[in-house]
């Protein structure tokens, strides 16, 4: 179905991994390695879904989510947090910051893409 995906992830290997999986399934990925670049890119790309790592350098994932939500064009774009639930409350904080859903790290390469697609489908309804 060819989603335009905005990936915001600081770890190079993970960024490559997710990009590889998504592109292999026919999605278009634009990747950013920190929050500010991510917000800038998302404004240009107007993506169908944003995958957001929560533990980011310089600007925390929660703040990135809040920033994205303040941009009118991105106010309703699905944001999926990709997080490892490092500490209690992370999940709630992610949802409170404006994320729509979350996928737990480490991701399962066999199910990751279909999980993203399913979440986007559900949010579109």
């Amino acid at each position: 179905m060819g989603l335009r995906v905005q990936l915001i992830e600081d770890n190079e290997q993970n960024r490559y991994l997710l990009t590889f999986l998504l592109e292999r399934s026919g999605h278009l990925v634009s990747a950013a390695n920190d929050g500010l670049a991510g917000i800038k890119l998302a404004q240009q790309m107007n993506p169908d879904v944003i995958l957001l790592d929560i533990q980011l350098p310089t600007m925390h994932g929660y703040d990135v989510a809040k920033g994205l939500r303040q941009i009118p064009a991105l106010a309703h774009t699905p944001i999926i947090a990709v997080t490892s639930y490092a500490m209690p409350g992370d999940r709630e904080k992610a949802l409170a910051a404006g994320c729509d859903n979350y996928i737990e790290k480490p991701i399962d390469p066999e199910t990751f893409v279909s999980e993203v697609e399913r979440i986007v489908q559900e949010l579109r309804k």
Partner: peptide
């Protein structure tokens, strides 16, 4: 967990 994420992936 971050490096393991990519190893497993």
């Amino acid at each position: 967990r971050t490096p393991l994420n990519s190893i497993i992936g």
